[in-house]
Structure formats: C-alpha cells, structure tokens
C-alpha cells in the first residue's frame, strides 16, 4: 500500500534561529500509527506547521496521496497539546467544529461517538465543566471526526499527569482501533511512542534530522501487560541509546 502522507527532504530555516529542519523525509501509510520522538525544541512542531500549511518549507516536497500539499491548508486533522476547545461551544458543538469548517456536520455520528466514549451526559456541557482528560478526549474525537484522513497529534498528553496520561494512551488506542485513520504523533516520551506506534522516527536535536526509523513489532490490540515484556524494555533501551548517540542529552 502506498504512503498516505509523505515528506521528502523537507528543509526549513528561520532568520532568527537558523536551520531547524534538515532534509526530513518520512511517510505514514494508510491506517498506520507513526510517532516522531525528539527532544524539546528540536523542531517537531515546525514539521507539523509545515504539513498544516502554516509554514512553507524552504526545500522539499510534501504529498497527501499523490497530491502535493506544500503551503496548502486543510489537508490534515489536528489535535494540539492543549485541548483548545472553544469555551462558548458545548461539547457536542466542539466535536462538530472540525467537520463544520468543510461541510455540513453529521450530528448523529458525533452523538454516537460521544456515547461510545461515555461522554453522552456531557453533550450539552461546556468545556470548563469537564476535567482536563475529558476535554482531551473531546479534542481527539473532534480530530477523528474531521473529514481529513490524516491525523496530526502534537504531544496531546504532555499536559496531563502520569496516571491520566496512561489511561489516555490506552483509551486513544481503543478508539483508534475502531476508526483507523493514518496518525502522525509527536512525543518526547519513549514509552508512549512504543506503546502506541507501528513505526517510530527518532529526531536529533536542532537542526532536526531523522536519526533512525524503528518498526514496532507488537501485535494489536495492545494491553498494559506489554509494558513489562522484555522485548518492550529492550526496545526502550535501544531507542534511548540511539537518541543519546544522536546527540541528545538529558531532555528525554
């Protein structure tokens, strides 16, 4: 199967900070979950801004299927670090927002999904009445129900505490198994990346280059038992030393 979204030798530099991305090439296949791990400030978010069309890469090309998307917007669905729900909209209306930007929203589908994730009772509640974890779930469903077939998740769990975080990872997997869109996931948490992904790209510190590409062999659906298996721990060690060799210091 061909790549759903691919980046070919994307390079980006800023006048103030110099080179940020150097020849970043990566791809995500249809229905694949791919993570990018890199230290904070390595330019992970810059990659996303290029894909989202907010930044124009200096060099290189990006494709969605066969179509070149350099500088184009609206090609991907997005879930940011903060839930970024509109505070004046109810949960249901927030879920519909992603669709609303492009087409007439499907209210029934949104309600069905809220039911599936046990947030039916909060359909007409406002975001400030929900916990941080709940809001993040709503934000994920909003992205999942957006019409685009590729999801960009930008460190979505980094603002949550450790327990909520792990719950959210398991929850994310269970929901994603049901509606497998192509996912590109940014994180600086190695364990999270292994647990969730089919493949992982390791990024060097700025200027970011891709240091290594790692396939994760574990079968789905995955459970938390996986975290204790030797193979899992070995992978974690391998990635850690690869990142270290790539010039990464204490930030992971």
């Amino acid at each position: 199967m061909g790549a759903k979204i691919s980046l070919e030798k994307i390079t980006k530099a800023f006048i103030e900070t110099g080179s940020v991305l150097e020849e970043i090439s990566l791809y995500v296949k249809e229905g694949e979950f791919v993570s990018i791990i890199g230290p904070s400030g390595s330019g992970k978010s810059t990659i996303f801004q290029c894909i989202g069309g907010l930044l124009l890469p200096d060099n290189g090309e990006m494709f969605l299927g066969e179509r070149k998307i350099n500088g184009g917007t609206g090609n991907i669905a997005y879930m940011p670090q903060q839930p970024s729900l509109l505070p004046w909209r109810t949960v249901l209306d927030n879920v519909l927002l992603g669709q609303e930007l492009f087409q007439k929203p499907d209210k029934q589908e949104a309600q069905d999904w809220l039911k599936k994730i046990n947030l039916s009772d909060y359909e007409n509640a406002f975001p400030h009445q929900l916990s941080g974890g709940m809001n993040q779930r709503v934000a994920f469903i909003r992205a999942l129900l957006s019409p685009q077939s590729v999801l960009l998740l930008d460190e979505p769990f980094s603002a949550l505490d450790e327990f909520t975080r792990f719950d959210m990872q398991k929850w994310l997997l269970s929901v994603w198994e049901e509606k497998r869109k192509s996912v590109l996931f940014i994180t600086h948490n190695i364990e999270e990346a292994i647990f969730l992904s089919d493949r992982i790209y390791l990024l060097s510190p700025r200027p970011a280059k891709i240091v290594q590409e790692i396939s994760i062999p574990f079968k789905r659906p995955r459970t938390d038992l996986l975290l204790l298996e030797n193979e899992f721990l070995q992978l974690k060690r391998d990635i850690y030393s690869a990142l270290k060799a790539g010039g990464l210091h204490e930030s992971v």
Binding site: F48, Q49, G52, G53, L54, T73, G74, N75, I76, A77, Y78, P80, Q81, Q82, S84, L86, L97, G98, L101, F102, S146, L152
Partner: peptide, 13 residues
Amino acid sequence: GELKHYMRMSGAT
C-alpha cells in the same frame, strides 16, 4: 493563541 493555532492548522479560512 492556542485556539487560533488549532483553527489555522485545521484549515479554517
């Protein structure tokens, strides 16, 4: 800022 960022990334006009 984060609301604007989400909207732009999602392709809002």
